[in-house]
Amino acid sequence: MTNPAPEVVLYEKRGGVAHVVLNRPHVRNAYNVAMRDRLFEVLTAIRDDPEVGAVVLFGNGPSFGSGGDLREFGSAESPVSARQVRWLRDVWGTLWDLPQITIAGAHGSVAGGGFEMLMLCDLVYAAKGTSFALPETGLGMIPGVAGTQTLPRLVGCGRALELTLTGVPLEVRAAANLGLVQGVWPEPHLRARVTRIAEKCAALDTGLRVAVKRLVRWREDPDGLSLPAGAGVWAAEAK
């Protein structure tokens, strides 16, 4: 008997916190079709789970994530169906729109889609020694996980152009100075620290939490994040 293949994304609920862990450590959590499908399944389950107030996102292995699995890109469908599938299973829109507070803990050399995934989260913490890069243009591609949109909104057009056009990696301290990372800790403490913050977020009143998230994002995403019943009142009053 062989063991069943391990899940490419691990999911576990502890109290009000959903723990999501990318689990393709041998390829630095390269994002492939299996990961897309599993992540979509996990994220939609979280979205619809009223017991979950916060989500933590980590990666197993040497790096949080290295972006799209290029070994699978050769076997890609036609551009027409690729585009169709992108919106049919909108993993990244689902992550961005989660009514819960999403908190990522990153480590290692984070590249491409791995980096972009972080920028779709509400809070990002990182281990010492982490670096972030968008190498796509060097391979004749552009970022495809919303990075060309989230990065300039976070750090301004100038820095976003520089990082995207040159592909030069950003060290964790520089990322923190730019506001991309909210805190830097030694790697052995990262998961515990992030989880503690998530537990605090999960304890917030649901309506308040959703309203704050929506209001803070209002300018960059006026039509985003549909509010659950009741939260709209908070939003209206807070405005």
């Binding site: 551009p79 690729a82 585009r83 992108r86 919106w87 990244w92 829109g93 961005w96 796509e136 243009t137 004749g140 591609m141 552009i142 970022p143 495809g144 919303a146 990075g147 060309t148 949109q149 989230t150 990065l151 300039p152 909104r153 057009c157 976003a160 152009l161 995207t164 056009l165 960059e220 995403d221 006026p222 039509d223 985003g224």
Partner: peptide
């Protein structure tokens, strides 16, 4: 990449992500 960043910054996030995806697929 330049087009997505510069033109997308004048759009809503959602429109910008559409622009990025369309350029991504065109590539």
């Amino acid at each position: 990449a330049k087009e997505a960043i510069l033109n997308g910054s004048a759009m809503t996030l959602r429109q910008g992500i559409r622009l990025e995806q369309d350029l991504y697929v065109l590539l």
